[in-house]
Write a protein that binds this DNA or RNA. Sequence first.
DNA 1: TTACATACTTGATTCGGATCAAGTTTACTT
DNA 2: AAGTAAACTTGATCCGAATCAAGTATGTAA
Lengths: 227, 227
Amino acid sequence: MQEHKLGTHDCIQLVPIFNQLTTVELQQVSAIVHEHVYEKGTTLFNAGDEANQLTIIAAGQAKVYQLATNGREQLLYLLQSGDFDGEAALFNPVTRTSYAEALVPTQVCSIQRSDFQALLAEAPQLALGILNEFGKRISQLEGKATSVTTSSIGGRLADYLVETAASFPAQTMFTLPLQKKEIAVYLGTTPETISRKLNEFQIAGWLKKGHGNQIAVLDADQLALQD
Amino acid sequence: MQEHKLGTHDCIQLVPIFNQLTTVELQQVSAIVHEHVYEKGTTLFNAGDEANQLTIIAAGQAKVYQLATNGREQLLYLLQSGDFDGEAALFNPVTRTSYAEALVPTQVCSIQRSDFQALLAEAPQLALGILNEFGKRISQLEGKATSVTTSSIGGRLADYLVETAASFPAQTMFTLPLQKKEIAVYLGTTPETISRKLNEFQIAGWLKKGHGNQIAVLDADQLALQD
DNA sequence: TTACATACTTGATTCGGATCAAGTTTACTT
DNA sequence: AAGTAAACTTGATCCGAATCAAGTATGTAA
């Protein structure tokens, strides 16, 4: 069973920032991409490492944690296929402040800074795609920063659920990709509160809890209206 | 008195993303930059506008507000000389979700999307500089998103004060650039709480309140240690 | 200088959500 | 299938900060 393994060319096509490239440019990119498969539970990179490369998830899933000053870890991103991290490394050597761990067997494409900079001079179109992707990410983060100071916990959880459920058929049961403890940390709250809010939502008829970490969103519209 | 007015060339040199350009490239950029001066209290752009340009503050100061779903306004940025906004517009036509107002007479440089894209193809070095700046902004926003879910109000206020005080000589009185009401909204709290926390900080000996909106930070190190 | 509006402060009360402390379920190991 | 550890739930209590309600400064216009 290795359906999730892909050739280099396919790998690159999965990444949004490379979507707009011509065939020729795609080949140029292929030439400088390195591939690696990480087993479940292994570390993609560590805090304190010097970062010299862009890391792209071709297939699989990884969690990125930031270490807070008090030693606590804050989940920063849940990287899915096509997501990337470490873009700052493409311009300057930086020390990573976060670390990442593979949740499942995960195939990663990486690009070295020096290779990337050389390529950029030849394929300006590439820069546009990346800039575009960065712009999106900034909007997203601005939204998060706003919503965190603006909405209540209930609202943030509701948003998270609607967003997560979006990748599954409507009204069907699915397994939450994160444990409640992790969702809690991600939203800046506690597992207890997550538990209680999910109950409230179920009583309101907006969702249905199943076995283990399964839920079905019944009324995404009402959920989204929370706060 | 027009010391704050600058020629186009000077204007561009103020902007970090253009810092690394060669003289030739700077001239190319100069050619496509439009300048405009907004009087105090006038609107730079409005929510709902279609954005087709990058807006750079050459001299002056502007507030950028985001409208929340409940109709409340959330202060997003306080733009100073050299800051820019609307970078998403450089890649796709977008509708603005925020609006900006000049706090003082403010000189603005703007670049149209079409001009920018044409330029980018000729000056790849420019893309690198912008990408770099974007990377920094993303780190900054990641930090803010983390600190908001992690620290208490006191900690966030302390950070804000230390940051704001940094542009004044140490331990001297200065006037806060925002009203307390606005600081409150910015930090996601209320004027009452700001008032109380400032008292606590004064009693602890970390700052001194003066007349009106003046304060002096006495012990930035202790403040920064808050939470 | 007085009058008025706006910003700010202070106190009393309320409330959301964190924390603490058991239980209970789920999932993994053998 | 039984045993164990981890994750989850539920209840009781506590605390930080929001809200409500006066007040007091500050600044502005006549």
